[in-house]
């Protein structure tokens, strides 16, 4: 474990806490893409298949349970919670995310570290996570004005993988046989998707103005 990875995990956790806060405090999920949240449930379930077989550390196991539990809770809330589901902007959340699932799985069948069930699903989860934010980014552009908590949620979500890139650079230089090219390349693509969001987020922060994404 290194400081970059720990910072990345904490930033990821903060993004989830901010989203839960928004939903529970405002009893609203307006501006949040249910499709992105569903993709994250698939990402975590596919990635943490080794939850009960490989014990790495208490921290690792606890964080996996937190990520799986929180992503399921958010999807349950947006689909089932009477007050919250009414605020879901279904007509703005129109990205056909099934293609993202299909494309990531096909790519995982082609590009993986080992052709085993667990490795295929691990690579699938890595590729899917890289594109999982797309429905949310498209929805933000459609909805125009972005409320603060939603903006902060997306910001922390993008920042966490940027910390992981620093972690991979650090491990590359400090560990002899470290090679995580699948996670690294996918992480670069994932962070790149946030580039324009980060730009408009920075502008809104600098001008102390509301976050506006160009339609």
């Amino acid at each position: 474990m290194n400081i970059f990875r720990f910072a990345g995990d904490m930033t990821h956790l903060i993004s989830i806490v901010v989203l839960l806060l928004k939903i529970y405090a405002t009893k609203s999920c307006s501006g949040i893409s249910l499709k992105t949240q569903e993709l994250y449930v698939i990402v975590f379930l596919a990635r943490y298949l080794d939850l009960f077989t490989d014990f790495i550390s208490v921290y690792n196991t606890v964080m996996k349970l937190v990520f799986i539990g929180s992503s399921l809770a958010i999807v349950w809330c947006m689909r089932m919670h009477r007050a919250v589901k009414r605020t879901y902007d279904k007509e703005l959340d129109t990205f056909r995310h099934y293609f993202l699932v299909l494309g990531s799985f096909v790519l995982a069948l082609l590009l993986h570290e080992k052709f085993t069930f667990q490795e295929i699903f691990w690579a699938f989860s890595i590729y899917l996570e890289a594109v999982a934010i797309l429905p949310q980014l498209v929805m933000l552009q459609r909805s125009g004005n972005v409320d603060n908590l939603t903006g902060q949620y997306v910001f922390f979500l993008g920042a966490y993988r940027a910390f992981y890139i620093l972690n991979w650079i650090y491990r590359f230089f400090t560990e002899p046989h470290f090679s995580r090219w699948i996670a690294c390349l996918s992480g670069l693509v994932q962070t790149a998707f946030y580039a324009d969001f980060f730009y408009y987020y920075f502008i809104s922060w600098k001008n102390n103005a509301k976050l506006q994404l160009p339609a």
Binding site: H12, D54, I56, N60, E113, K114, E119, W122, A183
Partner: peptide, 10 residues
């Protein structure tokens, strides 16, 4: 044969 590297990252 690269050892099955356990994914120690989240």
């Amino acid at each position: 044969e690269s050892e099955a590297q356990v994914h120690d990252e989240l």
